[in-house]
């Protein structure tokens, strides 16, 4: 089985995120870049499937030079090879362009599955996997809290608003995973050393047969008009319970007209 995993480099979860004056893009330089947390679960799921069934895991990331660190991290967890799409023209790409690039990078490479995280912590859109499925015409089996491959079929448990659905498709298919699915491994020392020798292919937009004018800020189909920091919340009242904590909260709730 051949599995691709899409991983995105995002600003460190705990870093304060800001939009830049001027181009209204996320200021990525001011924070450390880390692998999008949910994509670690995607890598883990791919590794577990391969460990059970044999095959190969290829990690794919679109992002600036330093996104190579994130590709390397997936390799040190155990992925076999990497593809890094890096091109100056990509800066400011929206989900539409990102999905076009990812779909082109996956096309014609005989993948059985491509696994995504269900959401990136910076964009928080949860749209790229569905867009890639739409573009490739592959089955979409997303928001999986469980994945099973048997023969040429993949079956997932899809987490929904009202419970869960069992969804089955034949491969190739687009999978995205939620964090309930597994516990991502930490790269071992051996894994980190081995990753240094694993192949990473660097690909430019033109190599994918896409026009650089179709990606990046200028080609984005939505635009930020303006943004502003929400006025900071006034500091709250903090009291220590001296046997009357519950009564005090009740008084507060009465004052605020909740009761």
């Amino acid at each position: 089985m051949k599995i691709a995993v899409c991983v995105k480099q995002v600003p460190d979860t705990w870093a304060e995120k800001k939009l830049r004056e001027g181009d209204s893009l996320l200021d990525r330089e001011s924070a450390d870049g880390v692998m999008n947390e949910l994509d670690e679960y995607a890598v883990e799921e791919a590794l577990q499937l391969i460990e059970a069934q044999g095959g190969e895991v290829v990690v794919l990331s679109m992002g600036p030079e330093r996104a190579a660190e994130t590709v390397r991290k997936a390799l040190s967890m155990g992925a076999d090879a990497g593809i890094h799409v890096v091109d100056d023209s990509l800066a400011g790409s929206d989900a539409i362009a990102t999905s076009a690039v990812i779909a082109k990078a996956l096309e014609g490479k005989d993948f059985d599955l491509v696994i995504f995280g269900s959401e990136s912590t910076d964009a928080r859109m949860s749209v790229v996997p569905a867009m890639v499925a739409e573009r490739l015409g592959w089955a979409q089996v997303t928001f999986a809290q469980k994945v099973e491959v048997s023969g040429s079929d993949v079956t997932i448990e899809r987490a929904t608003e009202n419970g869960s659905d069992t969804v089955t498709a034949s491969m190739p298919a687009v999978v995205s995973v939620v964090e309930k699915i597994n516990e991502p491994r930490y790269p071992s020392f051996k894994g980190i050393m081995a990753a240094k020798k694993k192949p990473v292919e660097t690909v430019a937009v033109a190599d994918l047969g896409l026009d650089t004018a179709a990606v990046g800020t200028a080609a984005a189909w939505s635009a930020v008009n303006d943004f502003a920091a929400r006025p900071p919340k006034a500091a709250g009242t903090i009291v220590t319970d001296e046997g009357d904590g519950g009564t005090k909260v009740a008084t507060y709730l009465v004052d605020q007209k909740f009761i």
Partner: peptide, 25 residues
């Protein structure tokens, strides 16, 4: 993030709060 916060054990604060709300309603 708190508009109002109590530093204390929830097992004493929360039941007391529930009881107070019960009395008031």
């Amino acid at each position: 993030l708190a508009d109002y916060g109590v530093v204390g054990d929830l097992f004493s604060v929360v039941p007391q709060l529930t009881e107070e709300i019960g009395k008031r309603s």
